[in-house]
């Protein structure tokens, strides 16, 4: 499908290509919904015990590797984030924040938790429901991706794309906010492929497996999980770190979507059509 540009230079052509299959688009948006619910309800669950340990066990009396807490007097509480020996004052956001107009001791603030008020039971209900949906949605995507060739064709990087010179070139281009155009924009670039692959094959399975390792029932059925992740508390820590990396991915992903043409990108993930601007001379 080719159409004349509206008001651009006469030498540019815009081609609408069919970029995202319906399964990709649907599973992408279900994933977006799951991610939001899982993140916000996950922070609600974290708030019930805002300390992370390494090992099989870990509770109040045991040393924490990561902790969000409050110290100081009740009149003047101070929030902190502690990672190993490093303590960062975070009053107002982490540890101590305003809830219902008053300063309250809570790890993540009310605007970041689902529900906003402290309610572990409801947070867990959202979390486990969304986790099931995420897993089923992910299985649909993987089955489609493998059978249709989408993963092999669009996501798996080519050998030549993995060369250090090629990757360095792409890193420089991204840093200068120079995005592929014309024919190069038809396919994902290597950094895109690698980051999508890291999420699809790395972080999301890691989230599911570490989540399951926190389940005493699953641990009895598949005790290997405890050996792989080093224990229920280690799994909880890895779950939190992997979630943080997913947040980082989503932040970069959204910034890239905005910088490289938000409407074109949004349209392609909704209708499937993606506009390619090429500099070819007019026929």
């Amino acid at each position: 499908m080719t159409r004349e540009p509206f008001g651009g230079t006469p030498s540019r052509r815009i081609t609408l290509m069919y970029r995202h299959a319906i399964v990709t688009r649907l599973t992408h948006w279900v994933n977006v919904a799951c991610f939001c619910v899982l993140l916000l309800s996950g922070l609600q669950i974290f708030n019930a015990y805002p300390r992370l340990h390494w090992g099989q066990y870990g509770a109040d009396a045991d040393p924490a590797a990561i902790e969000i807490g409050a110290e100081g007097s009740a009149a003047e509480p101070r929030g902190f984030l502690r990672i190993g020996g490093l303590s960062i004052p975070t009053t107002g956001v982490l540890g101590v924040s305003t809830a219902d107009g008053e300063l309250a001791a809570r790890a993540f603030p009310d605007w970041l938790t689902l529900p906003s008020y402290q309610d572990l039971a409801t947070g867990r209900r959202w979390h486990i429901f969304a986790a099931w949906l995420l897993v089923l949605n992910g299985l649909v995507y993987l089955a489609y991706g493998l059978l249709s060739g989408h993963l092999r064709r669009d996501i798996a990087p080519r050998r030549r794309e993995l060369g250090p010179r090629h990757l360095w070139r792409e890193i420089l281009d991204h840093a200068r906010l120079r995005f592929p155009s014309g024919e190069h924009a038809r396919r994902y670039n290597a950094l895109q492929k690698l980051s999508y692959l890291a999420v699809i094959a790395g972080l999301l399975p890691l989230m599911v497996l570490t989540g399951l390792t926190m389940s005493p029932g699953v641990d009895a059925a598949i005790p290997t999980l405890l050996d792989v992740f080093g224990g229920r508390q280690s799994a909880r820590l890895i779950h939190f770190v992997a979630a943080s990396l997913l947040v980082l991915f989503v932040a970069v992903h959204v910034v890239m979507v905005i910088l490289s043409g938000p409407l074109n990108n949004m349209r392609s993930m909704i209708t499937g059509r993606y506009a390619i601007r090429s500099e070819e001379p007019e026929a």
Partner: peptide
């Protein structure tokens, strides 16, 4: 055995 609290902590 390991005792797992719904809040997230564990004790053996």
């Amino acid at each position: 055995t390991r005792h797992d609290c719904v809040e997230g902590w564990s004790a053996i």
